[in-house]
Nucleic acid binder design. Structure first.
Lengths: 348, 348
DNA sequence: GACATGACCGAAAACGTTTTCGTGTTGAAA
DNA sequence: TTTCAACACGAAAACGTTTTCGGTCATGTC
């Protein structure tokens, strides 16, 4: 098995020094035209590419950004990454993705693997388990060692760093308001446990919208889905949980779900029970993915502009990376990206 | 901004040599218990972690696997990655993901970025654009430079490497047979252009099933969707294309779609036209993701055992990586992972 | 007292780059 | 012939590790 060719090999082959080869390849003024041509021809022939590892070691920077996301399958994260890549590539950075699968251990592990030299900075969204455990030591350590972090979507106040978030509260409030305007009186919400920051923010937005319209909230109508139920294995349990929301609230005429999956299942349950959407029940989801568009009926959603979130995150990180090293430490920014409600056929 | 602590700094601080520190940290016999304790305590205090870049350079291996996939959002790829990670982690490897977004240029770019030192080997699924252009030079070059590649799902005969594929032909054949057994006489297929290998294999399976049952195939019933229509921006065009399949074939009573999205849209179109599923039309998709399960009605699919595909790919790659370098070159393996039909409510 | 034996530690090379500084060889000016 | 710049190139250090090969002691043995 052949190895990649190195400067040293080229040098030996052409009977010049390593330095000469290096300079020739970068068209240095110091090297004669003859030598430059000779070296470049040889390098091209053997398809020489500088070894990135050696370069990283020498420059103490990799020009790579590490992205850690909880789940790869959500359309939201996919678009965030698209946004990150767009900005990163424009600035000469590459993007590397690792997954936490919503697990604390994997998050820590993957961060350690990348932090020790593989990348220059992180863009990440915190896993559910981490949020539940409230153990943020790995973020602190990473930052302490001089590696910047930008958090998006699922952020946490306890850590000082740049952040990009969505106006979850207002987004939820607007969505619920639309349902109220459409005539819904008994609106249920399918959300996550409160430790997921965006979940609780959206829940509060929901409550606020109800209050503004003089509707008294009912605990019965609030379903906080336990963690781990949104995996393939536990899908039946999730299904039953949502069915019970319908069982407990026969008068329910609207559902606000904090993600696409929850909304889809709610529509499926409604369909099974002969509840007509949107006539007898309106449904709105959060996150504007493909599922919403192709659901039957198509789902009204709160769109998050995921790509924009990615772009903003990349900007913040690169700005910090390119800034003069030991300048002022603080001045962490938090960028808020607005949401829009995309109305489709699941609302009136 | 603090930098990560290095062996050299520890050595200076403790007034010993770098070698001593290195050995002490690895509990070498050569070092006295006193020194070991002193060094380890200091290292722990300052949270010393060896610099992976330096290690990679020295060892000429990174213990990292690079995965390149066309699209992050498909449940299929998500599960493949899960499988890869499972096996990789068990063998002490880490996994790094990069996206091609179905683009040839990004595929080449990302491979180059990872190939030059960042990883030990690739596991990848070829982008549609690459398949269309039939330009495989980047795969050849990578392999020539001694970096092994394992291809999965979308593979290509022109390249010699280990491969993991699905029995697309048989899977499609079985699926169509189920619809025929269920009474469908005019079965349409929504597939991709032929250069996507799995697309054409599935098309052939469909044709074979028809032939076996004495049904003559009709060109009208075969819809080969153009590339690029399955992105968010072009979703309307895709929609219209599928509508035209219905328009051209009013007698159609069955649809076989080569992916989840196509199947979902077909169901949506059927629903709009008042066609009852499965009574008046049966639908089967390929790939068993969440969408199928939660569609209304739930979708019968050909399940691909994505995780198993990932595991097999990782096994093949690691086996090759750990093998004695300059042993026999060839003997490329192709592993076939079987499919199963998961029957749900969209078939009788 | 000479010598071997361990115990403990350090110097240096190597991985592949880039870059700074130095050095030798020209040809021309003095 | 000497001197000096310009030109073309090489040596070496540095990035952070691991590992091989010695080296320096003190101790024990005869």
């Amino acid at each position: 098995m052949k190895r990649k060719i190195t400067l040293k090999q080229i040098a030996r082959e052409l009977d010049v020094s390593i330095s000469t080869v290096s300079k020739a390849l970068r068209n240095s003024e110091e090297i004669s035209a003859d030598t430059i041509e000779k070296v470049q021809a040889f390098a091209k022939l053997y398809n020489y590419k500088p070894n990135n590892i050696a370069l990283s070691l020498k420059n103490r920077r990799t020009k790579k950004i590490g992205v850690i996301i909880p789940e790869i399958v959500h359309h939201f994260f996919s678009n965030v990454i698209k946004g990150i890549e767009k900005v990163a590539n424009k600035h000469g950075y590459n993007v590397i993705v690792a997954l936490s699968n919503e697990s604390f251990d994997k998050e820590v592990l993957n961060m350690e693997m990348l932090a020790n030299g593989s990348i220059d900075g992180f863009i990440l969204s915190i896993s559910k388990e981490t949020l539940m455990l409230k153990d943020y030591h790995h973020f602190r350590e990473t930052i302490n060692q001089g590696m910047p972090i930008v958090m998006f979507d699922r952020v946490v106040n306890e850590i000082n760093c740049d952040k990009v978030i969505v106006d979850d509260f207002d987004g939820a409030k607007n969505a619920v308001k639309i349902m109220i305007d459409g005539g819904s009186k008994h609106i249920g919400i399918i959300t996550t446990k409160d430790y997921v920051s965006v979940g609780s923010l959206r829940t509060n937005g929901y409550l606020s919208a109800l209050q503004l319209s003089g509707i008294t909230a009912s605990d019965e109508l609030v379903l906080k889905v336990e963690d781990g139920l949104d995996t393939e294995e536990n899908s039946d349990k999730l299904y039953k949980t949502i069915q019970s929301l319908f069982d407990n609230n026969p008068q329910m005429d609207g559902v606000f779900a904090v993600n696409e999956l929850f909304a889809l299942i709610a529509m499926k349950v409604a369909h099974e029970r002969g509840i007509k959407i949107p006539e007898q029940m309106q449904v709105i989801g959060f996150t504007n993915g493909v599922l919403s568009k192709y659901a039957t009926p198509s789902l009204t959603t709160v769109s998050q502009h995921a790509q924009q979130i990615g772009e903003q995150s990349a900007y913040l990180l690169i700005e910090r990376l390119e800034k003069d090293e030991d300048l002022e430490e603080d001045g962490w920014k938090t960028v808020i990206v607005k949401t829009d409600v995309v109305e489709r056929d699941s609302t009136k």
